[in-house]
């Protein structure tokens, strides 16, 4: 039988995949994808806790996370387009303007 810990383990695995992507990626668009992976992993955990504790609060938080993710994508992609117009590249190493 599938319990709460099964869902939490899957969610933790997905979250660590996303975090690995954030650490590993140098391209800004790919960094956005990794962020989406992390947000989805957290949503799975919220829905599982909401189901197993018979409580709607988890689902409410998942809704607000989805709203925040949507607005983050809208603003973030606008910034990416401006950056691409200015530098012609989305690589973080090319964008570094303060060399230490």
């Amino acid at each position: 039988m599938i319990g709460l810990s099964h869902y939490l383990i899957v969610s933790a695995l997905l979250f660590s995949i996303g975090l690995m992507g954030v650490l590993r990626r140098r391209n800004l668009l790919m960094l956005f994808f990794a962020t989406e992976v992390m947000l989805n992993a957290v949503n799975v955990a919220f829905a599982a806790i909401s189901h197993f504790y018979n409580d709607l609060t988890g689902q409410m938080f998942a809704f607000f996370i989805i709203a925040i993710a949507a607005s983050e994508v809208a603003v973030g992609l606008g910034i990416l387009i401006v950056l691409y117009k200015k530098h012609g590249s989305l690589d973080l190493d090319d964008l570094a303007s303060m060399k230490g």
Partner: peptide, 28 residues
């Protein structure tokens, strides 16, 4: 590094869930 820090984050945020005194705020 990614695996370890994700594990630490998940443990930190999942620890309160295993508290037995938790109860439904808005039950279905």
């Amino acid at each position: 590094l990614g695996g370890l820090s994700a594990l630490a984050l998940v443990l930190m945020f999942a620890a309160p869930i295993y508290n037995k005194s938790i109860q439904a705020l808005y039950p279905m």
